[in-house]
């Protein structure tokens, strides 16, 4: 019956599509989430530039970028995970654990070129555990990653007895503290990861699978895609990026902090969703998620400048998240 009911409507919508290919392409481009988000960001920047002379300065933008670097790095993995229908709450805890681990390793005399990759591998292993629990044991991703969140955070606390590890050699702080042509190294690293991540999710064969798996898991499996293997690798990638974010943050703070990045997972998710990713899978881009995080970053920067209490900032982030998703639902409902 559904087929019968749909046929006339489908025939109609086929006809109503503009005939020229470039017009269709333009329509599709405007229909994406990135463009309006970018416009919104520019609008805020223009307004603020006129209101506060301290806003549009290199120093302010640098501080902002350094601030959201860990979030943006993790968002690259998270958006791939979201597109494939996955979800990871443990990223903040993995970040904290990796930061303390790398600090411990370096302090114990391990070469940094070995310590950093070692921590990334440990991160990937936590991701493997997440992926394994979700695919092979069939635990809901929310529950599985909530579990690993507690475990990772717990281990970080036990290792440090709750106190930050400091006293690191100056060379360890180079990536987090120094800059190239006024741009901090860690921001450069973040930008490279975002650009590569965006292109890879759009164009690589491997990551194309994320869209298939997230759009229709059954169909993906019955089309010959190794769904479980892909999911596990996506969790590993996300956790490895969280570990990298942990290393960058430790380098910037010159310390391994077990309590770092509390609640960061929610910021990453909010950014990705504002940027067009869907929790039901199949939708989202790295660029969108990045812009979502930039937007949240700018808004909290604005609030700080306007002397809004820091406690309000979290509430505002939540309101923006709901507004973005509600707007999307309304637009989509009209389209269908």
């Amino acid at each position: 019956m559904a087929d019968n009911a749909q046929t006339p409507a489908a025939a109609l919508s086929n006809k109503s599509v503009p005939t020229r290919p470039w017009m269709r392409r333009l329509k599709r481009f405007i229909g994406t989430r990135e463009l309006p988000l970018l416009a919104l960001i520019l609008l805020v920047v223009v307004i603020m530039a006129n209101r506060n002379p301290n806003f549009l300065t290199i120093a302010n933008f640098r501080a902002m970028a350094v601030g959201f670097t860990p979030t943006a790095v993790i968002a690259v993995g998270m958006v791939i995970l979201l597109v494939s229908g996955g979800f990871d709450l443990s990223v903040g805890a993995v970040l904290a654990l990796s930061g303390t681990l790398v600090a411990r390793f370096v302090l114990d005399g391990m070469e940094q070129v070995i310590a950093v990759p070692a921590v990334l591998v440990i991160g990937a292993c936590i991701g493997f555990v997440n992926g394994f629990l979700v695919t092979k044991v069939n635990i809901n991703p929310l529950v599985a990653t909530l579990g690993t969140l507690s475990i990772a955070r717990g281990i970080a606390q036990v290792m440090t007895e709750g106190i930050s590890i400091s006293g690191l050699p100056a060379s360890f702080g180079r990536v987090g503290g120094e800059q190239l042509a006024n741009i901090p190294y860690m921001v450069l690293i973040m930008l490279v990861i975002v650009v590569i991540g965006d292109l890879a999710l759009r164009h690589t064969r491997f990551l194309r699978q994320a869209y298939y798996v997230g759009s229709n898991e059954n169909a993906a499996r019955l089309s010959g895609i190794a769904v479980d293997r892909f999911r596990i690798l996506a969790y590993m990638l996300t956790a490895a990026l969280a570990a990298l974010a942990g290393v960058l943050l430790a380098s910037r703070l010159m310390a391994g902090t077990p309590t770092a990045a509390q609640g960061l997972e929610l910021q990453v998710l909010a950014g990705a969703v504002i940027g067009g990713a869907s929790l039901t899978g199949g939708e989202g881009t790295v660029l969108g998620a990045f812009l979502g995080i930039v937007f949240i970053g700018i808004i909290s920067n604005v609030m700080t400048m306007e002397a809004v209490s820091i406690f309000w900032q979290q509430a505002v982030t939540g309101a923006i998240l709901i507004a973005a998703v509600a707007f999307d639902m309304l637009v989509r409902r009209r389209r269908v």
Partner: peptide, 12 residues
Amino acid sequence: TDGLFLKMPLRQ
């Protein structure tokens, strides 16, 4: 439910 990716374009 088992065959197509309804939200994705024809070529994909």
